[in-house]
Each structure stands twice: as structure tokens, then as C-alpha cells.
Design a protein around this nucleic acid. Structure first.
Lengths: 127, 127
DNA sequence: TCCTTAGTTCAAAATATATTGAACTATTGA
DNA sequence: TCAATAGTTCAATATATTTTGAACTAAGGA
């Protein structure tokens, strides 16, 4: 899988990431993105620690670094989370306000229902 | 695609269809299944005509017969709808009670948020 | 200045989901 | 009794999503 040197476009760390505007957040997409155990666990974890911004590393329990990178991008692109760059890490928060305005009651009912999903069970005692 | 006669297992119309028990309904699966425009439209339509049992044919607007058969099975298997056989047709209803008990507020917030999805727009004037 | 840390991209492989048409069945109304 | 209706299955294809490892970047601390 070695690329010829120069074939790979040099990766430049962006200083901020693209987020959809609140009115671009699509219901079907939000549901599809949350219809996955790993991402549901991430959102449950964010919700139960709301206010505290989390870095990607906090989620290592839920998958490999690479895989998490993928899932966290999905959450951000769907408008569910907001990610801000901070030095070498990224701080992730729920877009609670935008989601509540756009889909009243949705996030709460999901987070409540996700209370006892297996992956969060393990973390329960720690938080 | 002609099969040798006898290769195909004779299709026998079942007299009732398998539905998951209420406590087997999984949140992630419900979200994943509803994270699709076609199925969201079907559920929106069922919700807006709650009480009236719908046959598969009512949804022909949303796709081909075969394709609908697939989506309606997904909804039933996820525990979102209940399908009962009635002569040559199937009567489909939302499993409102089971869903509300298991995931309070979820169905309502989804149905409310789905108010203005494109596929339902077209039907608005008719209902 | 260099090492460690946090997180990335890219390409490939693995897996899952959606869509189609042809062939089919059972019920019902004429 | 027969044709029409409602809806199915099956197999194939098309398409999308997930998961992986290797190679990489930039920030920050020692």
C-alpha cells in the first residue's frame, strides 16, 4: 500500500472543520447516523457529560482510533456534534441547542432510551 | 433468471407474520430503519392516519411494489409496524403503544419533525 | 531540538443495504 | 370457475457503509 512519494496530497491539519448550518440538518440523516451502536454510545456519553467538552481519545473504549475518527466525522457531518480544534486535540460537544430547536424532544427521547445500551453500561460506574 | 422447475421452494402465503416482542425492539435498529426517506414517509403517513389500517398499496407513491415489500418488512421486523393478514391484503398499523412504552416521546418527536418531508408534502392536500 | 501525543488521510477489503424484474400464490368478485 | 388483485420470493445487481493498517502532520513538553 506504499504510495509513490508525491502521489499523496500532503495532509494539512485544518484550523476549523466544516459543520452543517442548523437548517441543513436532515432528520433522516440524523436518524441514520444515530442508528449505529458505536455512535449511539458516543452520543450517550456526551449527553451524560454535557457541558464537558470531550476529546476523541475519550471514546477509545468504543473502537480503534481510525474507526472513531470515521464515526466522529459522521456525527459532525450530520450536525449532531460540534468539533473545535484545540491544540493537538479536538473538543467535541453535542449540538444540543440546534437539535432541540430543529427536532424538539428528539435528542432527549433518544438519550433517555439509550440509557442502558451495552457499551455505556461498562462506563456507568466510572462516571 | 428462469429457475429449473422444482428448484424454487413453493411460496406459501403465511397466515400471520413474525413480529418482535416489545422488549426485543432495539433503539439503534429503530433509528437505523427510520433513517431512510422512504420508510420515514411511510411512518409519517401512518401517523397522520392513525387508527386507519393501511394496506401496502397505499404506499405505491413511495416506490415499486417489490421495493415497498422490502421496506415494509424492515419496518415490521424492527417492531415499528404491525402487519396483519386480511384476505388478499395486509393491514399495517403503527405499534404506537409498544413504541411509546419502550421509548417515551421518540415516535412523537420523529413524526413531528417529519411533518414536512418532501414525499409527504405531495400527499398533504389529499388527506 | 526532538519525542510523544492526538488525531488525521488514503486505499483496500469486508459487509450490509437497496433496487430491480420475473415468477409466483391465494383471495375475492364477477 | 376464472380473471383480477394484492402482495410475495428469489437472485442479481448496484450502491453505500464499516473496518483496517500504514503513512502521515502538527502541537507541545522535556
Amino acid at each position: 500500500m506504499r504510495l509513490e512519494p508525491g502521489n499523496r496530497r500532503r495532509y494539512l491539519r485544518p484550523m476549523s472543520l466544516p459543520h452543517p448550518a442548523a437548517d441543513q440538518i436532515s432528520l433522516a440523516n440524523v436518524l441514520a447516523v444515530l442508528g449505529d451502536q458505536t455512535r449511539l454510545a458516543i452520543v450517550g456519553y456526551l449527553a451524560r457529560n454535557e457541558g464537558v467538552a470531550m476529546s476523541c481519545g475519550q471514546f477509545l473504549e468504543f473502537g480503534s482510533k481510525t474507526n472513531l475518527s470515521y464515526h466522529l466525522a459522521k456525527l459532525r457531518e450530520a450536525g449532531i456534534t460540534s468539533t473545535e480544534m484545540s491544540g493537538t486535540s479536538r473538543l467535541i460537544t453535542l449540538r444540543r441547542g440546534d437539535l432541540d430547536r430543529r427536532f424538539p424532544g428528539l435528542l432527549d427521547s433518544i438519550v433517555t432510551a439509550a440509557r442502558d445500551i451495552p457499551q455505556l453500561e461498562r462506563l456507568r460506574e466510572q462516571s
